[in-house]
């Protein structure tokens, strides 16, 4: 098989790009828009919300994330450096046993993960954490 330079780059190293095509990044404006759509531009406190994400993720395709904000009505997750910032929104029902949820998400490279909780009284809380994403050394 002949291996061109292009193929090598494409197969071995396009880790961050694997799920997002070209790693173009959400503009700061898009992130702000997504946040504004959720909060209506309200101020956000920083207490009472916990975001657990690995400092270093071995691969950007599957990054485990946990959020909790006791008493929250909903928690929105955002990835500031993805082509589209929205990740998911947890809306807690009357039978939620806690206002905690965990999932696995895609991160297109090192970036900040943002969690914003909407409290039943209409106030908001936010937590942010930076996640570094390892570029794999072996393709295949």
């Amino acid at each position: 098989m002949t291996q061109t330079r292009r193929q090598f780059v494409g197969t071995g190293l396009a880790v961050a790009a694997a799920f997002f095509g070209l790693p173009h990044i959400a503009s700061a404006a898009q992130l702000e828009e997504a946040i504004a759509a959720f909060t209506g531009g309200a101020d956000m406190g920083g207490e009472g919300i916990t975001l657990i994400a690995p400092e270093i993720a071995e691969n950007g395709n599957t990054v485990p994330i946990e959020v909790s904000a006791p008493g929250a009505a909903a928690i929105m997750l955002l990835a500031a450096g993805n082509p589209q910032a929205d990740v998911c929104t947890f809306n807690f029902g009357p039978l939620a046993g806690s206002q905690m949820a965990s999932t696995r998400i895609r991160l297109a490279g090192e970036q900040e993960v943002v969690a914003i909780a909407r409290m039943p009284d209409g106030t908001f809380k936010q937590a942010r954490q930076n996640v570094r994403v390892t570029i794999g050394g072996c393709g295949g």
Partner: peptide, 27 residues
């Protein structure tokens, strides 16, 4: 839902990984 009442309702965007996984608590 549990017996017809909502536990959690999640809106999902493309940044959730292949084979979506969720963990949460229910009363």
């Amino acid at each position: 839902e549990f017996n017809g009442e909502m536990v959690i309702d999640i809106t999902i965007d493309p940044a959730v990984s292949t084979n979506p996984y969720f963990q949460f608590d229910a009363t």
